[in-house]
């Protein structure tokens, strides 16, 4: 079940990627990329190298993260529920509903199907397409920015998951919230359960990654004007879907938006930085010297 669904996701996203690459990136840029792909890969390699420590962190987070988290983390589910119950107060001062309950009150099968596919396919597409698109540019900054911003999202997210233990609305508001993705589109669970832990709720990494992708789309609006509205629509849909499907609290989403923005800032800050071994050594020497001079 896991493999067939994963293959299905990969297949469908690939189709989207091909279509988007042809229409948004365009044949001219693709031809250019094909001619200079060696240099471009060489320029990107150090950033792809950044993936290695990330994968190690991911492995650790998956294997011991949940257990470690229950030992050192703080349980905040109750607080998230309380805050979420106050957010719509300006709209409904009399009887304020939970944000997720309010969103689900508008549910229809078609809307559920839309948000379920956006949550799975749309999200993957939204994150993968920029990598292709920015590799096809003649200058490396957008690609570097993206790689660093994605990495920052993930690292900060993992630390938060360690520190904050929370369950999503579908695990607490049983009588009101339906875990729509889980009851109606069962097949996706085999993929989501394999890549995520159910206490990894605060903040919403789906939201932060989507916000990052959309903000980066704006930063390359001159090159890819068509990508801006598409990325924005997808990002907003992904954000709404996390709440609509009962997976995240609105509070997770608010902090997710903040994290997505912060990650882009970090991406800009370090886009000129080359992650080479010598660079790391230099930096370490710099720190050591700084400490020494302070000790004196």
């Amino acid at each position: 079940m896991f493999l067939s669904t994963a293959a299905q996701v990969a297949g469908i996203v690939s189709v989207f990627l091909v279509v988007a690459t042809v229409t948004i990136v365009g044949p001219d840029r693709l031809r250019e990329t094909r001619r200079t792909y060696r240099e471009r890969l060489a320029a990107a390699a150090p950033y792809v190298g950044l993936l290695v420590p990330l994968l190690v962190v991911n492995k650790l987070a998956r294997d011991i993260g949940p257990e470690l988290s229950w030992l050192v983390g703080i349980r905040i589910t109750g607080w998230l529920q309380t805050i979420d119950g106050l957010l719509l107060w300006p709209l409904y001062p009399e009887a304020t509903p939970q944000v997720v309950v309010w969103l689900q009150s508008m549910a229809t099968p078609a809307v559920t199907a839309y948000f379920s596919s956006v949550y799975v396919y749309g999200y993957v597409f939204l994150l993968v397409f920029p990598i292709i698109a920015y590799m096809s540019l003649s200058y490396p900054e957008p690609f570097r920015r993206t790689a660093i911003a994605y990495g920052a999202n993930y690292l900060i997210g993992v630390v938060c998951y360690l520190v904050f233990i929370a369950y999503g609305p579908r695990n607490l508001l049983v009588e009101q919230v339906e875990g729509l993705l889980f009851t109606q589109h069962t097949q996706y669970q085999f993929v989501t359960a394999a890549v995520n832990n159910e206490t990894n709720v605060f903040p919403s990494l789906h939201t932060s990654m989507a916000v990052t992708a959309a903000l980066l789309a704006w930063s390359t609006r001159d090159e890819y004007p068509l990508w801006v509205p598409i990325a924005t629509l997808l990002a907003v849909s992904v954000i709404v879907s996390t709440m609509y499907l009962g997976i995240h609290w609105a509070t997770d989403v608010i902090f997710g938006i903040g994290l997505g923005w912060l990650s882009v800032v970090i991406g800009y800050r370090f886009e000129d930085w080359q992650p080479t071994l010598t660079g790391v050594k230099l930096r370490l020497t710099g720190i050591r010297n700084a400490i020494r001079s302070r000790q004196r």
């Binding site: 079940m1 875990g179 889980f182 009851t183 069962t186 097949q187 669970q189 085999f190 359960a193």
Partner: peptide, 13 residues
């Protein structure tokens, strides 16, 4: 299995 709905699906197959 990830959930009870998923369990019923696996049984059905």
């Amino acid at each position: 299995v990830p959930s009870q709905d998923a369990a019923v699906e696996v049984l059905a197959e």
